[in-house]
Write a protein that binds this DNA or RNA. Structure first.
Lengths: 210, 210
DNA sequence: CACGTTGTAGATCGTTTGTTCTATTTCCTT
DNA sequence: AAGGAAATAGAACAAACGATCTACAACGTG
């Protein structure tokens, strides 16, 4: 039986919080070690590189989001409208001071990852897809497209809120998304399955690679 | 009369592209100088620090977005629905390979800025507000709240698209936002001015500062 | 108790970072 | 043509970066 310590978990938790607060690149390994009260010996015993720690963090985030966030919403609310509202509350909670937990928004992390961290970017995409699928299951017919709008709007609203130093954008999107969902649930007409323009659906490759 | 060179503009343009492609932190000053064919002597002649270059980039972005993006949309389209669709096309254009221009999305840049770059974050907030105001002017009654939803959804969709390596999220949001706007323009009911929960409107301070 | 695995400590490494410095060139003004 | 400010070149810097290394402590198992 392998001996186990809490250091690995501490490193993941600490790194996650720091990555979410100040980004991946600007979070140094030394800062992670100092805050987690670990030394480089421990760090590189558990994680070959900093990138591998990021992958471990994303794994933890996926489980946390699925279980603690979405699961909690589904048990406390039953109708789609209030669930969307509750999801928005989670995003808002991450725009107020001293929000220590991490998990949302995910998108902010994606943009600073380069081609070397393609694996991490792919993992974030998987988490996104899982969240969207789960949100879609709240709606009639498991409407995937509406779920995409909800998640995208909240992710974007969180960024706007961060930039403008006010949670107003999250609130605005929350109420409008709720209204939109309510309309659809009551048999409203949804947007046509519009055939998107020429570039749509094309694979994005060599992005950020010169 | 001051002597003028193109180096400063080259540095701003090059830095902007790199910041948008790979983020602020992971873009080194040396890379900017090399790509812009400038030396550190020129660089620090024009910009005291890297952060000052970022501010200059944001100024350029603001002008570019206002004039070349929003202006072009307004001259080529007249009705709100197709303008929203055109704005979505701009976002999609930034999710396909070899997108050399910069300007959108803005939000990705915000998250990796720390307390030291509070000025830059504030500038991004101003740009956001300008864009939202401009988009709002497309709608009946200059509906600011709908504009916030549109911009937030597209910003978020761009991030989802980047993570999932597919522009599908942008397309989905584009069609649904168009439908939403169309419904409102034709006298549809909008979401109530919902009084947001306890945390709403609170100032976000000391964000990311321990 | 002794062995072997697992985890921890901390000095150290080579790069890269953003920045500074001095010297030199370029170009406008007088 | 002379003077002077503006711009450029490039070596050099301290600090921080991610990562490596050796030594040692802690534990489960025989």
């Amino acid at each position: 039986m392998a001996r186990q310590s809490h250091t690995r978990d501490r490193l993941i938790r600490t790194a996650g919080e720091l990555f979410w607060r100040q980004g991946y690149a600007r979070t140094g390994v030394s800062e992670i070690m100092r805050r987690a009260r670990a030394t480089s010996g421990s760090f590189y015993h558990f994680f070959p590189t900093k990138d591998d720690l990021l992958l471990a963090v994303l794994d933890a985030v996926e489980g946390r989001v699925e279980a603690e966030v979405l699961g909690a919403i589904e048990t406390s609310c039953s109708d789609p409208v209030s669930r969307v509202s509750a999801l928005a509350d989670v995003y808002r909670a991450h725009t107020v001071p001293n929000a220590v937990d991490f998990g949302f928004p995910l998108g902010a992390l994606v943009n600073e990852l380069g081609v070397e961290q393609a694996e991490a970017r792919r993992r974030v995409g998987e988490i996104y897809e899982g969240v969207i699928q789960r949100v879609a299951s709240w709606f009639v017919g498991s409407n995937h497209r509406v779920a995409e709008l909800v998640v995208a709007a909240l992710e974007g609203a969180a960024l706007v809120a961060l930039a403008s130093q006010s949670a107003e954008a999250v609130d605005t999107c929350s109420s409008q998304l709720s209204a939109y969902v309510e309309g659809l649930e009551q048999g409203g007409v949804e947007a046509d399955e519009m055939p998107p323009p020429e570039t749509a659906g094309r694979e994005i490759r060599d992005w950020k690679a010169w």
